[in-house]
Design a protein around this nucleic acid. Structure first.
Lengths: 231, 231, 231, 231
DNA sequence: AATGAATGAGCCTTCATTCAT
DNA sequence: GATGAATGAAGGCTCATTCAT
C-alpha cells in the first residue's frame, strides 16, 4: 500500500483522503516556509495533527510528499489560471498588468496562493531531487506564459532571445517579492504589503516593463515597414 | 574562552589569526554555495584544513561564524565600492551599467566577488537569526547605493517611493540570476552563463531599466519646467 | 479474536481457510529465503496477495505464523516420508543415497521440497523463540531417520553414540549446501548448482560416507563373530 | 576524520585505540551471536560501554565496523594459523586431525577463537554487502588450506574437483557444529561440548574422512602404477 | 472475514557542540 | 592554541501491531 514513485497509490477511502489532505496542507505551508531540506516530517505531522508515521504510510517518503504537494499546488494554480484566461480577450498590456497583479497578491497572501511560488524560490537556491519535476511542471509553464505575453507585446516570437530576456526582466521584478518576504519587511518597514500597496507595486512593475517593451515594439514595427518598402 | 556574541573571544596571536582567516574564507565559500542551514561545520573545517573543533573554539558557535563571515565580506565589499566610486565621475547611466555588469559577473564567478550577494540570496529564502545584521550591514547599504543611482537618473530624492520602486525593479532583474543558477541552467539550456552571455544579459537589464528611468526623468523635467514657469 | 499460541483462533469458514493457506504458502517461501527475522509481514502478505493485517488476524502475530508454517511443512514432509518409505524395501545403502540426493535437490529447487530444510538452516544460526518446537518437530525426526539408516548400515543401535556421530557427519555434508548458496556460488563459480552437478555431489557425499560406514560395519561383524565364537 | 571505505582512518591516540578496541570486541561478540542484520549499534555500544555515536565517529557506519571487525578477527586467526603451521612437519593425516580439532575447539569456546567462524555462518545464510570481502579474506584462504591438505592426502591437485568435494565434506562436518550451537545443545543434551567430547568428535570426523581419503589415495596409486607400467 | 488506516517503538545516521589534554 | 575524542539531540525511515469499520 505504499505510494513510492507516485506510481501506485493506495485506493483510499474518505478517511484517508482527509488525512492526506491535512498532510498536504501542512506540508505545503511548511515547505513554503523553510524549504524542503529544513522541513521535518515530525513538524509537518504535528501541524497536520496526525501520527508521525503517516507520511510514510500515505506517501512513502519525504520526497514523494514533496512532489505530491507540488503537484497539488500546481493543479490548483492551473485551474485558477484557466479561469483567469477565460475572460481575457483583453489587449496584451492589460493581460500583463493583471498577471503581475495576481502573482503579487498570491505572494503576499498567507494562504495557498503564494505557497507554490515560495516553494519554487526555495527550490532555486536549494535544489532537491525533485527539481526536474518542479522545473517541468511549474516553472516551464509559468515562463512559457510570460514568454507568450512578452512576445505578443514586442512583436517577436516567444522563443526569440530578446523575448526571453524581457520575460526574465518582468519575472525578476516580481519574484523578488516572493523571495524576500521577511527580509523586505525589515528593510522597508514603511511599505506594508497591504492590498493597496501591492497594487501600486504591480502597477509600477507593469509600467516599468512596458516602457521598454513598447520601445522595442516600435523599433520592430519601423524595421518591418522599412523592410516591406524595400521589397 | 568562549566567543559567543563576539563578546569574549580567546586572546589570540598571529597563529590564531591565521586560522580564523582560513575558517572565514572557507565559510564564505560554503555559505555562498549552500546557505547557512545546509552548511556543516565539518565541511567548512575540512575546506579550511583545520581541526573540526576550531569553529567553536574561535567563534563560539556556527551562527557567530556566519555573522563574522558576513562582516568580513561586507568590509571587503565596502572597500571595493569605495575604490570603485573614486574613479567614477562618469554619468549615472554608465555607472548603472557597470554596477549591473559587475554584480552579474560576481554571481557567476566562483570567486569571492559574488559570495556576499549569494549569501544574501540564501538569507532571503532562509532567514537566519542573523537576518537583522544582514539586512542592516549588507542589504541596506546595497539598496542605498542603488537608490542613489536611481534617484540621480530620474531626478528624484533617493528616499522617494518612486525611486525605491525603480531600484527594486533593477535589483530584481539582477537577483534572479543570483538565485537560480541550477534551475535556470535546466530551464534554458542554450543560454550558458559565459562571460559574453552575462555581459549581454547585463546590457539588456540596463537598457530595459533605462527605458523607464529616462521616461520618468523626462516627465520630471517637464513638470519641473512647468512649475518654474508658473512661478 | 486473537490467535496467539494457537489457543483461540477466529472461527473460520472456507474463505478464511483459503486465506490462511495462501499466507502459509507465502510465509514458507519467504521464511525459507531469508529466515524468520528478516522476513517482513508486509512482503509475506504481498506475495500471498492478501491484506497486510491478516497475519495478525489469523495468526495473532508473526511468531505464530512462523510456528504454523513449520507445522504445516512438517506434516507435509511426514506424509512424503511415509509415502517414500513404503516403496523402500531397498538395501540401506540405496536408501541413504536416495535420501541424500532428495535432500540436495530440495535445497536447490525453488519449490516447496526444500523449504523446511532451509528454514531449519536459518533457525540454526538465528534461533527464534520457536526453536524448541523446531527442534522437536523437525530436527529430531529428521535426525532419527538418519540415525536409523546409519544404525542399519553399521550394525549398531540408533541410539549408540557412534551411530549418532556418523549421522551428524552425513548431515553436515548435506547441510553446508543448504546454508551457503550465494557464498558457495562466489567461492566456487565453476560449480553451478545444476541438477547434474547436484547429483554428482550427492553421489560423492554418499561414497564419502559409505567408505567409513562400511569399514565400521566390517569391524562390527568381526567383533560380533569373535564374541559369538568365544561363547 | 571519518573512516568510510576504510580508506582514511583518523590518526588516533591511545584513548581512541582503546575505544576502538572495545567496540571491535563488543561488535565481534554480537555479530557472532546474531549476525550483521540483527545486531544493533546501540547494543554494541552499550556492551562496549561507550556513547552510541562513536561507531559513526570511529568507523563511519555499521558496515565499516563490521568489515573491520572481520579484518581484525581474520588477522588474529592468521597469526594463530601461522604459529600452528610452524611446527607442522607432521604427516598430512596428523595435520588434518589437528586442524579439525583446533577448529572445533574454537567453535565451542565462548571466546574470540570461534567468533570468526560463527560470523561466517551468519554471512552464509544472510549475506551482507561485505560478502565479497568475507569470501575473499576469510573463506577462500580457509578453503584453500583445506584443499591443500585434502589434495596431499589423496594425491591429487588442490584444484581438482574431487579434491574440492572431499574438502567440502570435511568442512561440512565441522561447520555444522559452528552453526548449530544452541540447536544442537537442545537436540542432543547428553553430549555436552566439553573439551573431552569435542576431542572425540574431532577424532570421529577425522576417522570418518580418512576412510574415504585413504581409499581414494589407494585407487590413485594403483592407477598411477598401472599407467607407468603401460609406458 | 477482511480492509484501510493508524500507531509507537526502534534503527542508522548526521550534526553542532563540549571535554580533556 | 589546537586536537582528537566524546556526547546527546534530532531526523528519516521501517516494522509489527492495533483500531475502527
Amino acid at each position: 500500500m505504499r505510494a513510492k514513485n507516485g506510481a501506485t497509490r493506495p485506493a483510499h477511502g474518505p478517511a484517508a483522503e482527509d488525512t492526506r489532505a491535512k498532510l498536504l496542507d501542512a506540508a505545503a505551508e511548511i515547505f513554503a516556509d523553510v524549504g524542503y531540506h529544513r522541513a521535518t516530517i515530525r513538524e509537518i505531522c504535528a501541524r497536520a495533527g496526525v501520527n508521525g508515521a503517516l507520511v510514510n504510510y500515505h506517501f512513502g517518503d519525504k520526497l514523494e510528499l514533496y512532489a505530491q504537494t507540488l503537484e497539488r499546488l500546481v493543479s490548483v494554480a492551473r485551474i485558477d489560471a484557466v479561469r483567469a484566461a477565460l475572460n481575457q480577450k483583453a489587449p496584451p498590456e492589460t493581460i500583463l498588468r493583471e498577471a503581475i497583479r495576481a502573482r503579487l497578491r498570491g505572494v503576499a497572501a498567507g494562504d495557498q496562493s503564494g505557497w507554490l511560488f515560495r516553494i519554487v524560490a526555495h527550490e532555486m537556491t536549494q535544489p532537491t531531487p525533485a527539481m526536474t519535476r518542479v522545473v517541468n511542471s511549474v516553472l516551464r509553464p509559468l515562463y512559457n506564459q510570460v514568454y507568450e505575453i512578452a512576445g505578443a507585446l514586442i512583436g517577436l516570437p516567444a522563443a526569440d532571445e530578446q523575448t526571453r530576456l524581457c520575460a526574465h526582466s518582468v519575472m525578476g521584478q516580481v519574484i523578488i517579492y516572493a523571495f524576500a518576504g521577511p527580509v523586505l519587511a525589515r528593510l522597508w518597514p514603511d511599505m506594508q504589503m497591504t492590498p493597496e500597496n501591492l497594487d501600486r507595486i504591480a502597477n509600477h512593475i507593469t509600467d516599468f516593463s512596458l516602457a521598454y517593451l513598447r520601445q522595442v515594439r516600435g523599433a520592430q514595427q519601423l524595421a518591418a515597414k522599412a523592410a516591406s518598402m524595400r521589397n
